[in-house]
Design a protein around this nucleic acid. Structure first.
Lengths: 198, 198
DNA sequence: CACCCACTGACACAACTGTTTCAGTAACGC
DNA sequence: GCGTTACTGAAACAGTTGTGTCAGTGGGTG
């Protein structure tokens, strides 16, 4: 049985990818091995063999979701760091870009999955979900920090400003996922950007 | 079997209250009738009799949670409306009060439950959770609107401002639930209040 | 050829799920 | 007294859950 430390086999990533697509469509809350296995053309036996147990599978799925999350973060960093001048892009443009990504229709399934995992890890801090919420807070705060110019980044108000930016983004995301009213929520985000600039 | 329209019996509210306390402690995700029933000194049979089926129980629990939520909303309105002058208190003081309530340690279980139900209703828009997320968005937006003075309330920017205020509150709440770092998150909220005032 | 290794199918196991059936019990109006 | 109403206990139902057992398969390497 492959340990967590060993590199994943080809078959493992193949099935994980299929299971990930399934999870995006059906959620993680009542994920069950047998329906999942038949949907992706496998069997519970194989999933057990490749991921150890169900918790291992869920952990792998959460890690896979985090990969998608980190993809945009990297793109943000790449769009920010090598700005031909090596200067970070600043907090406001960073929020602008992140919101454009969050508001894109095709990212809804991933974001719903994220919300589900986040909430679950709050209620049930042990098991496969452990630390997920906390980890994403730290991830995003670090990225936003990297977008702030040097003197601001290390200041006290700089830390407050990026915590606030994160809160606005996530609160707006929650609203958007529930109401699907991009014009209203997007206007609120842009309003905040104006406040932060001023 | 008592319909949803009939008034709940004494025994029904008694058991619902006990089940609610249980849900606050254990979450709704993997709520199961037998453990719940034994914990509150009842039996699955009785829960089925009083609530029809499990979905009915969950629906009743969500409605019960919403009662707690509406309690603070009412208190906000009472602290806002009869300000001796009949004038609303304004958006900024409203956010201030709501945040004080959200950040209070004793409300964490309720807020975790809220987050769980919210996320779940996003992923699984049918069944007992249906519309929960959407309903709370509308609830809170309406309350924030009621706190805005008359000309602002009906304006376009007034709607944007209260959407933004809601986003900040909920984003900050998510951060707080995950990080338990009230000083950092509270500072961000206060920073936002300064921005909104200016 | 033999050998190993990653992978897989069929099936059984015990535990748990929501729900139902049947048989009550206690209180109350008549 | 009798019947009705609200509630309850014990047990069983069929289905699903995660997981274990045993026996393979096919391909690559020695």
């Amino acid at each position: 049985m492959p340990e967590e430390t060993t590199a994943p086999s080809a078959r493992q990533v193949e099935l994980l990818e299929a299971a990930y697509r399934y999870a995006l469509a059906h959620g993680l809350a009542d994920l069950s091995l047998r329906p999942l296995a038949t949907a992706i053309g496998s069997s519970p036996r194989v999933l057990m063999f490749l991921f150890g147990n169900k918790d291992g599978l869920v952990r792998a799925l959460l890690a896979r979701a985090r990969t998608d999350e980190l993809a945009i973060l990297d793109r943000l960093g790449h769009g920010g760091q090598p700005d031909r001048s090596g200067q970070p892009i600043g907090l406001v443009p960073a929020v602008e870009r992140v919101w454009a990504w969050l508001a894109a229709e095709e990212h809804r399934p991933l974001l719903r999955l994220w919300a589900e995992a986040y909430a679950r890890s709050l209620v049930e801090p042990d098991g496969a979900w452990a630390g997920f919420a906390r980890a994403t807070v730290d991830d995003w705060l670090a990225v936003l920090a990297a977008c702030q110019p040097r003197p601001e980044r290390d200041s006290e108000t700089g830390a407050v400003r990026r915590t606030l930016a994160l809160a606005v983004l996530r609160g707006a995301l929650l609203d958007l996922l529930a109401s699907d009213d991009e014009p209203r929520v997007g206007a609120a985000v842009r309003h905040q950007l104006a406040l932060l600039r001023g």
